[in-house]
């Protein structure tokens, strides 16, 4: 496990040494800030609901851009060979890279805490949904990060990794909004698969075990998929 931590800190440092981190964070803050405050004063309500409700639509673009290089780049330049011949297990590598992407999502969300602080001065802010919202955002970001890592493991081309990751994440966001396309028999299943539905529950401040289990199992399935894909390459 110590190995996973070394890989985690290396990957996290890599984000902030290169310009990727700053570009992604700036874009994220610009888009969310713009859309949030464009309607905030019209709504005249002291809450962050419209901010959180944007995240399932924005994360599918932002997070695969963060995770796309994690395996693709290593496979492409061949450093994966050097990494895997160090005394590390594949599990440590995947966990380390995943934790780095989770940490990145958390760091990206930190500046938005200032919205909550500002709003609490303007009106009577209910902190319950805010805490729930951030918890949900971290869980959602982690799940999409795991999906992005899976996409990155499948190809040595970063652009393909980005597109594959984005398509899967976007599907998870939208699938429960398109229930009318599916036959009645599988409706509950499809509804449960949608990430948006679970995220909304948590971001309303209702922390239900079922939603948390949904995110944790998505993370597990995606990372396990990445493990299988990388194992197959040996």
């Amino acid at each position: 496990m110590a190995q996973a931590l070394h890989i985690f800190s290396k990957e996290l440092k890599d984000y902030f040494v290169s310009p990727i981190a700053y570009i992604v964070i700036c874009i994220f803050l610009l888009i969310t800030g713009w859309f949030f405050f464009a309607t905030f004063f019209l709504m005249d309500q002291a809450n962050l609901r419209s901010f959180f409700s944007m995240l399932p639509l924005i994360f599918p673009f932002v997070i695969p851009a963060v995770t796309m290089r994690l395996f693709s780049e290593e496979l492409n330049i061949g450093s994966y060979e050097m990494l895997m011949t160090l005394p590390v297990s594949l599990r440590d590598v995947i966990v380390g890279k995943f934790l780095a992407s989770v940490a990145f999502v958390a760091i990206m969300l930190v500046p938005t805490l200032s919205y909550a602080v500002w709003i609490s001065f303007m009106g009577d802010l209910d902190w319950g949904p805010v805490v729930g919202g951030y918890l949900g955002a971290i869980l959602l970001g982690s799940a999409y990060g795991a999906v992005g890592i899976f996409a990155s493991a499948t190809t040595r081309n970063q652009i393909i990794a980005f597109i594959v990751g984005m398509v899967i994440c976007f599907t998870l966001t939208l699938i429960d909004k398109m229930l009318f396309f599916f036959p009645n028999a599988i409706l509950p299943l499809i509804h449960y698969l949608g990430a948006g539905f679970h995220f909304e529950n948590i971001s309303r401040g209702i922390v239900d075990t079922r939603d948390i289990i949904y995110f944790l199992s998505t993370i597990f399935v995606a990372l396990y998929g990445a493990h299988l894909v990388m194992q197959e390459k040996r």
Partner: peptide
Amino acid sequence: LEIKKLIGYLPESAPLYHGM
């Protein structure tokens, strides 16, 4: 894992992380 600890390996053309 134990074996990897015993071995130091230089792959062909030394594929290192470019950014570090």
